[in-house]
Design a protein around this nucleic acid. Structure first.
Length: 551
RNA sequence: UGGGUUAUGGUGUAACGGUAGCACUACAGAUUUUGAUUCUGUCUGUCUAGGUUCGAAUCCUAGUAACCCAACCA
């Protein structure tokens, strides 16, 4: 393959359609139901639909599939729009299935007139009963015999609010013996005396998904209607309506939805996590929601890159969350400002340091020359990370130890001369000397050390709070695990650190800027930060070879 | 047990009858003032059994496994 990226199966279909002159331009759509927040699985669909349009010079509509007023809310509409935009996509039109309620009602009348739909008074249990099973055909009931006039009147009365919820439905008259259960006279309208977030109380009958989605595609002239695998059986019905209504022939294509290790990807389960307070909200940084990932520090670029890397196919998949982390590290490495923060401080006194303080410089980002330098104050008393010192180190440990030497990043080489302990034998301080000729950038000492540590000057240190996140679940594939998914929630998915000290440059931290805390990971300022307290979220750790060796 | 869909390294994804490639992971090494980054290298794969063919991941036959469908949800 001469460097050319191969096409996925949908791209192949589109290129064939375009080549055959079937369409001049393509039109796709992203059709969320506004009953929850978008998650990374939706991002896959968004990137696909908008990406295809972009690649082939077409357009994409954002269409809310709002046919069920009892679960849908404006709050969700707003969050969905914000998330799609944040991901970097612009829709051609903001549309709603509810825009088409009048058209859909007219379509239903047409079906009745063609004797292809009837009003059924059966209860939901009776309908289920009469439907049969996958191995036995269903039976049509007496209501299917109603005349066109009778059906027209009844349906009109349903619309007028004459009947209570659940007492009547409109059904398409197709085939009660079909092997595809969806073709066994599917319900297309039900009575719901519910307030709709857009149409208010205008309607008390609402179309079902199957009677709304395909027709909406058709009304908009969508050329390629892309959805997930579980809708495959719906395609037959989708086509049946288009054919019998004789409307624009949109086509449905299906791809496999995204599953990811150590998390859940269903709106129902995510809603449960929110409602039952396992997380702090839809935008909790542990959630796989777009808003959660945004708050955690993921960039839109990295999410798009991830969606590109996982590919599009028709087989079930379970993507290693490590791939997502790889993508975000890859981007953050290029753009984040380097800063030093000590999480668990151990005091160091430089016994031979005679100045009160001096200002040192260090690069903001070694990956980006234009990022410039920052000032870092150095003084006699510093903090380093407790875990960077060991009194009796194993062979492969090359950080600080008694008599040992390390470099302080951007500063000097120091040597540990004395370990100070409290009455209980805990190490509370290290007395060190520094090598004056080893100053960073003008080192003439000739000394080579194996390790470089991050540090902060004690007098200049800024206390900050850190939120460290771990995977949401304790098992890779919760769908394959026994019992309820909530049994597998990771109890330590959030660790809050209140002992951390940051270098003074971090006082200027702002939302949306990305930081790499040297040797610790990528962080961003949390929206709950204020003048008194800065809170940083860890987006992802750095790769840590030492942690692996150590284990 | 009716119908539908899918099977390629640990995980994803290519190949369109002609050298099984790429990415992530894992492992080994080089460089490094982040045990990061970067660079180099290594391991591991065509669900099974037959068949067609000079040649099969690809075509045929028969199995096997997984997922989806019996909501007035989408």
């Amino acid at each position: 393959m001469d460097g050319e990226k191969s096409l996925n199966f949908i791209e192949e279909i589109i290129e064939a359609d375009l080549a055959a002159g079937k369409h001049k331009n393509i039109l796709t759509r992203f059709p969320p139901e506004p009953n929850g927040y978008l998650h990374i699985g939706h991002a896959k669909s968004i990137c696909l639909n908008f990406g295809l349009a972009k690649k082939y010079g077409g357009k994409t509509n954002l269409r809310f599939d709002d046919t069920n007023p009892s679960t849908e809310e404006t709050e969700y509409v707003e969050s969905i729009k914000a998330d799609v935009q944040w991901l970097g996509f612009n829709w051609a039109n903001e549309l709603y299935a509810s825009n088409y309620f009048d058209d859909l009602y007219a379509f239903a009348i047409q079906l009745i007139e063609k004797q292809l739909a009837y009003v059924d008074d059966s209860t939901s249990d009776e309908i289920a009963e009469q439907k049969g099973t996958p191995t036995t055909a269903g039976k049509r009931n007496k209501y299917a015999e109603r005349t066109v006039a009778e059906n027209l009147q009844l349906f009109e009365e349903m619309k007028a609010g004459k009947y209570a919820d659940g007492t009547k439905v409109l059904r398409a008259k197709i085939d009660m013996a079909a092997s595809n259960m969806l073709m066994r006279d599917p319900i297309i309208y039900r009575i719901k005396h519910a307030h709709h977030h857009r149409t208010g109380d205008k309607w008390c009958i609402y179309p079902m998904y199957d009677f709304a989605h395909g027709q909406s595609d058709s009304i908009e002239n969508i050329t390629h209607s892309i959805c997930t695998l579980e809708f495959i059986p719906h395609r037959e019905l989708y086509n049946w309506f288009i054919e019998n209504l004789n409307i624009f022939p949109s086509h449905q294509y299906e791809f496999a939805r995204l599953n990811m290790t150590y998390t859940v990807m269903s709106k129902r389960k995510l809603l449960q996590l929110v409602n039952e307070k396992y997380v702090l909200g839809w935008d909790d940084p542990r959630m796989p929601t777009i808003s959660g990932m945004r708050r955690r520090g993921y960039t839109a670029e990295s999410i798009r890159e991830f969606c590109d890397k996982i590919g599009i196919a028709r087989r079930e998949n379970l993507i290693d969350i490590g791939l997502l982390e790889f993508c975000v590290r890859e981007h953050l490495n290029k753009i984040s400002l380097r800063r030093m923060v000590v999480f668990d401080p151990l005091k160091i006194t430089i016994t031979n340091y005679t100045q009160t303080e001096e200002i040192l410089f260090s690069e903001n980002n070694p990956e980006d020359e234009t990022a410039g330098n920052r000032q870092i104050p150095f003084s006699k008393e510093l903090y380093i990370e407790k875990e960077d010192f060991m009194e009796n180190p194993p062979k492969k440990f090359f950080r600080l130890c008694p008599e040992g030497m390390v470099r302080l990043k951007g500063a000097y080489i120091i040597k540990c001369e004395e370990v100070v302990k409290d009455a209980n034998g805990n190490i509370i301080e290290l007395k060190c000397t520094y090598i004056p000729e080893s100053k960073s950038g003008s080192d003439t000492s000739g000394i080579h050390v194996k390790s470089v540590l991050h540090w902060v000057s004690a007098n200049h240190a800024v206390p900050v709070e850190l939120c460290l996140y771990d995977r949401l679940l304790t098992v890779e594939n919760v769908d394959a695990a026994e019992g309820d998914f909530k049994d597998y929630i990771n109890p330590s998915s959030l660790q809050t650190i209140t002992t951390a000290y940051a270098e003074p440059a971090l006082k200027n931290a702002v939302i949306n800027e990305r930081y790499q805390f040297l040797r610790k990971g990528y962080f961003c300022l949390d929206i709950n930060s204020n003048e008194q307290k800065m809170i940083f979220n860890r987006t992802v750790t750095l790769k840590d070879t030492w942690a692996k060796v150590n284990k």
